[in-house]
Amino acid sequence: MPVTLRVNGQRHDLDLPPGMPLLWVLRDVLDLTGTKYGCGVASCGACTVHVGGQAVQSCQLPVGDVWDEVTTIEGLGTPDAPAPIQAAWIAHQVAQCGYCQSGQIMAAAALLAEVPDPSDAEIEAALALNLCRCGTYGAIRAAVRSAADQMREA
């Protein structure tokens, strides 16, 4: 099935099996491995990306249903030029094993784009689906809060 996908500002014309989830197109076809596989059933958030700026669990989104431009963790920022949310993650030393953090960051970035000054409840709601096994939740709360402050000042 021919599919045209815009990912991180780049256009890809691909021939893919229908129904293939976006996650595996990113990871196994485009080699964008920053987006992680965790469960395949949209219950852990490790695969969270943005579609049209909205946080989406890419493991349950068939590539044919992608309705807008896709942004992955690689498109958010780079090691040399991290996005503000990533800079906050680095400053707060959030990551332990780090495997879930791409998804956490993408969920947090989508939240802050929509709600510049989120309440604790809004942060909790936005990140409720994203599992972390290392117990970084406290650092995540702190990083989202400080990213929000920085982004509003900027």
């Binding site: 080699d31 491995t33 920053g34 987006t35 992680k36 596989y37 992955t72 963790i73 690689e74 958010l76 920022g77 780079t78 090691p79 991290p82 990533q86 993650w89 680095i90 030393q93 959030v94 990551a95 780090g98 495997y99 953090q101 791409s102 960051i105």
Partner: peptide, 20 residues
Amino acid sequence: PRVDAVAKSTGTARYAIDVR
């Protein structure tokens, strides 16, 4: 500062599952 903080905040840390 953790030596892995930047890589793990930018999707550039490589796990076994990411070997290509």
